[in-house]
Design a protein around this nucleic acid. Structure first.
Length: 686
RNA sequence: GGCGAUAUAGCUCAGCGGUUAGAGCGGUGGCUUCAUAAGCCAUAGGUCGAAGGUUCGAUUCCUUCUAUCGCUACCA
């Protein structure tokens, strides 16, 4: 059984969002192995594409250096989260180049029912950056919207008026790579015609369990209903990737060689371990075709590649198709998209550096994942509560509260009122939950067992038995039962918490390495000295992690993208007449700190601010900024600039004792002025 | 604008065409003190987003609406 996780892109570090997938797949792999299945867990770095090329240029070093550095960082992050790949390769590997060539040759030879070639050639006109010497994807061009004249819009559509257009329609287009003015150039591209595969894909996407229903429905509604468009698989030079063998100067688009990376990484692993790759991923002509299973774990954003293009490629080249594609949603933090400024864009390394145990995150994700394509939320407060309550308070506590009472387990398993057998009987239900990806159901069942075990300990009160030497047998029995119940839980949790399972095996001297071990209690075992198994989660560490993530200075996104200023704002509001300095000096502008910001229910645009000018000087200011600052609590604490000597103005909500200074036309676009850090409330602006 | 999804107790989520809708956490009140301030018992708290429809009966199925989240905008 072969399992892959999506290939992380070489350009960025692993963050908690990535880990949802790698941990999810790792849990599944570990579960399958506990069940006795042989599993290869394969991953690799996705290396090619324009982004890598540009980064290498900007940093003045080779793509190879970047790839080496990032691969090492990625692998270390994964290893530290107990994500254990059989092999971690690279899409830039020679084996991948060879395989991509093989796939390409197959596509070149393939013919549809009408005898037409699957590969088509067409000229594509694109904007070209003469300074950077590169064709520009739509997102690398910015300019003014031809319809509504909004500045700073991307080359494909306008975020303001929602018009869609071609990058060449932009007014004053600018390359975000170099700032140069792009020109139109035409180049030949190669396309894979997908329409001939449509009937095949319609059937395959509906075949049993291959895809979650919601995904299959969506594909059928969104894509497979109409003729499939041709897929542009080539990019003209310069491009970082593999050159197309029979078309010099043209390179394979990154999404051609990325999925092939699954196969090439597997191939490399088989080479180093002296296995036959066909055992894992056979072709139709191999004897064991269809004998093993192939599972891809991916995020919903790359569904098309794995459910349309990739199956078409595999079919054409004669490889076994994926048994199942497991598609998951995205991670939000505290209910919102991960945000760098809020510190919720958390890198895997930042989590570890804060001193947090990977087991916490593995358990939390497991308790949330349910096999659907829904997004899952990492609520940091809940994270702390859940981990401490479930793992430490319920599960590990069972061992903590009984392991020190007895040196040796009873030689025969005592009567426990059927508890152990009841928990053993849960085995299948829990296994089914794991197998179907519904880890949250598995966790719920396991925690319910932990509750019952704690009730048992409470009822037997071993701490009371301990005081009476005559009741030693009872004490031993009670501890034997509770430690066995604990061990069962650890076996059930082993896919999620491999480290705890190992420590428990050490403590109890048992094997505990297969799922079946949960069916049979341990007896007569001499206990190893008890050590804490999992540390309590300290919320301060979570706070530290968020603070550290927030203070990370984001890398400058692009050289000139945001520096393209036009004259729209100025012409919309022409300059006022010239004033004398005396006139200006009448206006007393002061730095003020917002100490409270309150919504006024009746007001659509007004927020009530209480600002401090330092000392005791507090003022109430009504500011028309609600449309842009919807969450007033976020304003509290920040410094702004106010007109401090403006005559008080009575309003229907109260009297405004100053005016907050802000720029922008209104609506969403209101920008409060802030002094640079170091300014103090009360200071005058000169 | 298009597409997908979600909307059930304060929070995170189960559940299901049919007797009084559940769990964990949190709250409250007890108990316990073995344990990493852990555990046990009890208890409060929901007109299952809104409006229609199907049905003997809907939180559960259908339609519409609203809100939220995510993706996407014609090289997916």
């Amino acid at each position: 059984m072969l399992v892959t996780a999506a290939l992380p892109y070489v350009n960025g570090h692993i963050h908690l969002g990535h880990l949802v997938e790698y941990i999810q797949a790792d849990i599944w792999v570990r579960f399958q192995r506990l069940q006795g299945n042989q599993v290869a867990y394969i991953c690799a770095d996705d290396t090619h594409g324009t982004a890598t090329m540009i980064r290498a240029r900007q940093e003045g070093r080779s793509e190879q250096q970047i790839m080496a550095e990032m691969s090492e960082a990625h692998q270390k992050d994964f290893a530290d989260f107990a994500v254990q790949f059989s092999h971690y390769g690279s899409t830039d590997a020679p084996s991948n180049k060879q395989l991509v060539g093989e796939f390409w040759a197959a596509l070149r030879q393939a013919r549809d029912d009408a005898g037409e070639s699957i590969v088509a050639e067409r000229d594509v006109t694109q904007l070209y950056d003469p300074k950077a010497g590169s064709f520009l994807a739509d997102r690398f061009v910015k300019g003014t919207c031809p319809k509504c004249k909004s500045p700073d819009q991307y080359g494909d559509s306008c975020e303001k008026c929602a018009a869609t257009f071609s990058p060449s329609d932009l007014i004053n287009p600018v390359s975000t790579l170099s700032g140069a003015k792009p020109e139109l150039r035409s180049a030949k591209h190669y396309f894979v015609r997908l329409e001939p595969f449509r009937d095949f894909l319609k059937a395959w996407t509906r075949s049993d369990n291959t895809l979650q229903n919601e995904i299959a429905n969506w594909l059928h509604g969104a894509f497979l209903n109409d003729a499939l468009r041709d897929w542009d698989v080539s990019r003209p030079a310069p491009y970082f990737g593999f050159e197309i063998p029979d078309a010099p100067g043209n390179f394979f688009y990154v999404w051609v060689d990325a999925p092939v990376g699954y196969l090439s990484s597997l191939t490399d692993w088989c080479a180093t371990t002296q296995q036959d790759v066909k055992q894992w991923w056979p072709k139709t002509t191999d004897k064991n075709f269809g004998a093993g299973e192939i599972h891809h774990f991916i995020g919903k954003d790359i569904t098309y590649f794995h459910t349309l293009f990739w199956p078409a490629m595999l079919k054409t080249a004669g490889y076994q198709l994926p048994t199942q594609v497991h598609i998951h949603g995205f991670l939000t933090v505290n209910g919102e998209k991960m945000s760098k400024s809020k510190g919720t864009f958390i890198r895997a390394r930042a989590y570890l550096d804060a001193g947090l145990d990977p087991a916490y995150l593995r358990y939390y994700f497991a308790s949330k994942l349910n096999g659907k394509v829904e997004d899952i939320d990492l609520n940091l407060a809940e994270f702390v509560d859940k981990v401490n309550s479930d793992i430490v308070g319920k599960v590990v506590n069972l061992a903590s509260r009984t392991a020190k009472f007895v040196p040796v387990l009873a030689s025969t398993y005592p009567d426990d009122g059927g508890l152990f057998n009841a928990a053993a009987a849960e085995s299948d239900a829990i296994a089914t939950a794991y197998a179907t990806g519904d880890y949250s159901a598995a966790m719920r069942r396991i925690m319910a067992l932990a509750d019952r075990a704690n009730e048992y300990v409470e009822a037997r009160a071993p701490w009371a038995l301990k005081k009476d030497p005559a009741r030693l047998d009872e004490l031993t029995a009670a501890c034997t039962v509770s430690l066995n119940l604990f061990r069962q839980l650890c076996i059930y949790l082993a896919p999620v918490l491999p480290d705890l399972a190992q420590k428990t095996a050490d403590l109890l001297g048992g094997s505990g390495n297969t799922w079946q071990d949960a069916q049979k209690p341990l007896t007569g075992i001499t206990l190893a000295p008890f050590k804490h198994l999992v540390a309590r989660l300290d919320p301060a560490k979570v706070d530290a992690m968020v603070a550290a993530s927030a203070s990370e200075t984001p890398a400058p996104a692009s050289v000139v993208a945001t520096a393209v200023d036009d004259g729209e704002a100025l012409s919309a509001e022409p300059l006022a007449g010239t004033i004398a300095f005396e006139d200006f000096s009448k206006v007393d502008l002061r730095v003020a700190r917002i100490i409270a910001a309150v919504e006024i229910p009746k007001a659509k645009k007004i927020l009530q601010l209480t600002v401090s000018l330092g000392g005791e000087d507090r003022r109430t200011v009504f500011a028309g900024i609600k449309t842009a600052y919807g969450d007033p609590t976020k304003l509290v604490g920040r410094l702004i600039v106010i007109v401090a000597n403006l005559a008080a103005k009575p309003m229907s909500f109260g009297t405004s004792e100053g005016m907050a200074i802000a720029a922008g036309p209104g609506g969403q676009e209101i920008f409060l002025l802030s002094p640079d850090s170091g300014a103090k409330p009360g200071q005058r602006i000169h």
